[in-house]
């Protein structure tokens, strides 16, 4: 279980997270929604200590992640898989080298065992036979799936998805959603998905939380999300231009 307590984060003069409190339960598929720039990805990066809070703390299986030393932090991180928004594949490496990197670094597996495991994960994400391509030779959807294969190669307990369907065509986005659900069921992992793609939310979420102005303003099931009378949530969910959220005026 992951417990986020009173998390605060500011960048220069802009406060991104204000006293965020959130429990993420084992095995659930939690989706965090909110407008672009509302702090969703920042929250996700705090969970694996890629960013450190100004105040507050995060407990991962009752261990305060910001207090542990580097060795324990890396041990904790092995329990996480992180799919980055841009997939963040290492462009000097082939697909197989990208996916195999954590195994090469953290296990004593033989080359044969590593290749077998990489092939197994590529099969799972529906991309067999691309082992020796470089990231530059892959489409956006393929990159995301390779990123996902890399994220799950160590059989993590938690998988964090940062806008997994952004920039993909609807069919590829549906495929990624299907993968998230399949992985969650097959590997019994806890999934935390950050997105503003409402189609994806409807398919994937066991529970939805919405971040707005650095605070969680909604937490509940998908049915509760659509039934809520919170006007901000309503406007976001129905993609309505009219409502309490208005884009900031552009000054020239």
């Amino acid at each position: 279980m992951i417990a986020i307590r009173n998390l605060k984060k500011s960048f220069e003069n802009k406060t991104v997270l204000r006293d965020v409190n959130l429990d993420i339960y084992d095995g659930e598929k939690l989706v965090i929604i909110g407008r672009s720039g509302c702090g969703k990805s920042v929250l996700l990066k705090h969970i694996v200590n890629l960013m450190q809070p100004d105040n507050g703390y995060i407990l991962v299986d009752n261990i305060a992640i910001k207090r542990v030393g580097q060795k324990d932090l890396f041990h904790l991180r092995k329990q996480f898989g992180f799919l980055f928004q841009s997939a963040a594949l290492f462009d000097s490496m082939t697909v197989v080298e990208n996916i195999a990197l954590p195994l090469v670094e953290h296990t004593d597996m033989t080359l044969k065992e590593i290749n077998e495991k990489v092939a197994e994960k590529l099969e799972l994400v529906g991309l067999p036979g691309v082992e020796y391509l470089k990231p530059a030779e892959l489409s956006g959807g393929m990159k995301k799936r390779v990123g996902l294969a890399r994220a799950i190669i160590m059989d993590p307990k938690y998988i964090l998805y940062d806008e997994p369907t952004t920039g993909l065509d609807p069919i590829m986005a549906a495929n990624i959603d299907k993968l998230i659900i399949e992985l969650s069921e097959k590997l019994n992992v806890t999934s935390i998905v950050v997105t503003h793609d409402m189609q994806s939310v409807a398919k994937v979420a066991d529970r939805v939380v919405m971040l707005h102005n650095g605070k969680i303003i909604f937490s509940g099931s998908i049915d509760e999300l659509y039934a809520t009378d919170n006007k901000v949530v309503n406007q976001f969910v129905t993609a309505n231009a009219e409502g309490p959220i208005q884009p900031k005026p552009v000054t020239y």
């Binding site: 990066k45 694996v48 890629l50 580097q70 890396f74 041990h75 991180r77 092995k78 996480f80 992180f82 980055f84 928004q85 841009s86 963040a88 594949l89 290492f90 462009d91 000097s92 990197l101 954590p102 670094e105 953290h106 890399r150 160590m154």
Partner: peptide, 21 residues
């Protein structure tokens, strides 16, 4: 240029998330 590109494309974050310093 190489490390800088890795930084701005989140590849450094990816290394850290894979428990690699």
């Amino acid at each position: 240029a190489e490390i800088g590109t890795m930084k701005v494309t989140e590849q450094i974050d990816a290394l850290e998330s894979l428990a690699i310093d």
